[in-house]
Design a protein around this nucleic acid. Sequence first.
DNA 1: CAACCCACCTGACTGC
DNA 2: TGCAGTCAGGTGGGTT
Length: 278
Amino acid sequence: MPELPEVECLTNAVRATALGWTVSDVRFLRQDLRAPIPTKRFKALFTGQKLSEISRRSKYMLWKVDGQGYGIFHLGMSGNFLMRPTGEVQMKHTHAVFTLSRPRRKDVYLHFVDPRRFGIIDCCTLTELEDHKYFRELGPEPLSCENLADHLFTRSRRRKQPIKAFLMDAKNVVGVGNIYASEALFRAGIRPLKAAGKVNTSAYERLAQAVDETLTAAIAAGGTTFRDFRNADGNPGYFALRLNVYDRAGAACGQCGEKIRQVKLAGRSTFYCRRCQA
DNA sequence: CAACCCACCTGACTGC
DNA sequence: TGCAGTCAGGTGGGTT
């Protein structure tokens, strides 16, 4: 259930529960997701160790053990962590169960669930992280980048790729998935099909601003979704976020009343308003 | 290199 | 009720 805002909210929820707790048991119910899970290495790294940091980079969640290394989690299209009072497997597509312990407290169980299995569970040492193949080519974080507009403008010169595909490429900027790409481009008034290299500086200023606002609003919305995370069935959805164009083909644009268009772009459904986006 | 296409999976939904 | 076809929030790898 993951673009950047969902991973951010889930990371915050996991941190609130797991930080400072000891991973007393690691159980894998299969050996591979999108890639093989280094099950032995993961267990050796985490079993009996205290979680010292829970963070997000791009759409990855990281669990740190001081002096040891990181657990790396990606949720793919359908992944999620569920917090449960039992380690008993309750869902069909549960692939890993982590037992968290703390003195004089009841154990808590984190269930990694992912029906489509596009997710990733991996681990590495502290020094391996920055050169890890999933991380070494990543672009900047959109919510903490000093000057995203300049960065995108510079990188996009002479590129004929549609701006939407350019925006969704994590080498340029991380975390903007298919929904928020359409939403941010609407907010910035830029057509998704326009060549990235033809988008000018002022349009990139608007786009950087739009990405920030869209992701920030979604995080706020996701926060409400995840508030009762411990009891929830783990199905966040997007109900709290008002989408302007995504999945609204044929409906009236909220700004001008024009019919929202849908096109396929680089294999992904793309939504925009012909009148509001030049 | 840049741009595209595909595969990897299950499940939900549509139309016959 | 069933069955085939389509689509889904991601991304790495292979091909032009």
